[in-house]
Each structure stands twice: as C-alpha cells, then as structure tokens.
Amino acid sequence: MADPIHQFEITKIATLGHIGGHEIAFTNSALFMAITVVGIWALLMGGSTRRALVPGRLQSIAELSYEFVANTIESTAGKEGMKFFPLVFTLFMFILVANIIGLIPYTFTVTSHIIITAALALLVFITVLVYGFYKNGLGFFRLFVPQGIPIYILPLIVFIEVLSFLSRPISHSVRLFANMLAGHITLKVFASFITLLGGLGIFGIFGATLPLILVVALTALELLVAFLQAYVFAILTCIYLNDAIHPGH
C-alpha cells in the first residue's frame, strides 16, 4: 500500500544560500507557492487586459471573484472593511488556487502544511492587533469587556474573552490545514484500495469499483472543501477585522 503521508513530504529542489548556518532551500512547497502566485497573476491579468463590456470566460472569473470577495467584506465588516480588500482578496485567491492546484494528481498541496496556514492566520491576527490599537488606541480593550455583565463575574468573563481571542489564530489555521490534510489522506487511502483490490483477480476487480466510485465522489467533495475552506478563511478574516474596526460591537 502506498504511503498516504508521502505526498506531504517536502523535498529540496535547489539551494539558494545559507543564512546563519541554515540552509535556505527552494523546496517543492516553494515551487508550488510560486506556481500558485503565477497562476493567480495570469488569471487576473488575462481577465483584465481585454476589458470587454460583455465579459469573456477569463474576465468573468476575475470579475466574479472580485465581486464575491467585495460582497463578503461588505456584508461582514461594512464599508470601512473595504480598505482591507487587498489583504482579504489576496488571502482568498492564494488559498483557493493553492487548494485547487493541490487536487491535481502529482502536485503538492501548499495549504496542507500547518506552517503555511499558521503564517497566514498570524498575518491576519497581527493585522487585527496593529490596526485595532492604531485605530482605537486603548479602546481596543473594550473588545474584551462585554456590556451588561454583573461586576462580580466581569474578571472571569474578561479572562474567557481574552482566551477566546487568543484561540482565533489557532482555529483559523488548524481548520484549513486539517481539512486539506485529512481530505488528501482519505483520497490517497481509498485510491490505494483500488489497486490492492484490483490485484486480487476477477472478484477483486468488481470489488475495486466500490472504492473507485468513492474516490470520484471524494474528489468532488474535495473540490467543494477547497473552495469552502478558502471562503471560510476569508470570511473569518473579515469577522476578525470587523472587531478591529468596531471593537465595541
């Protein structure tokens, strides 16, 4: 049986140099990140060069993704949230394209490594902290003090609110990473059942159709998950940014 974890292995492609005795390598993960970025660039440039009144396919995709993210931001963070449009759009497109590229066989799924998703989640977390304190000053701490709570349980509630706030980057990053990892392992395991059963003769081949059907269905599910996880990441980014913009609400 093929090792289902093997697909997540990071391999070195080229060494770029050394910093402080550490090797800085160009890995397959970096390669697929670059492919993702170039892919997004090509999609958006290709979609926006013609500027037709009646959009073609590429332009439709570019316009749809723009409008989708813009609507998401406006509905969760309001008009003021639109100043974070570049951040949210970049995150959404990067995660979406990385997830979808990862579904193609023999590719590497960038978002199945927690270091990537944690870096993205921390980027959001730090943006929220910096912008929250920049915009509201110490008033940002109102986020941790709910209104209408009796004074004798307020200290406990503040502790709970702070912990709830600190748990955000963890749930934000683990959700994406775990969904991608679990989905790809499941696909691999069911796909290896096909070859295992197929090697058992005529009955095995009949039996192998069952996991084959499952793999087809799982691939469709993974496509949905790839989109949904990017959407969840974007909408949570908006919700967290909304707290930085309006901490009292």
């Binding site: 600190l166 749930s171 969904n179």
Partner: peptide
C-alpha cells in the same frame, strides 16, 4: 448558501482551539 456550509466548517475547530490555548497558558 455558502455561508451556512462555512458556518458548519467553522464549528469543527473552535472548541478545540479554546481548550488548547487554555491548556498551553
């Protein structure tokens, strides 16, 4: 509605994250 599905996916890790942060602190 994608936001309903998104909400479902959110539930999966929220509780674990809170407990993990509490345990770490």
């Amino acid at each position: 509605d994608p936001s309903a599905l998104a909400r479902g996916f959110r539930l999966s890790t929220e509780l674990v994250a809170g407990v993990l942060v509490g345990a770490f602190i």
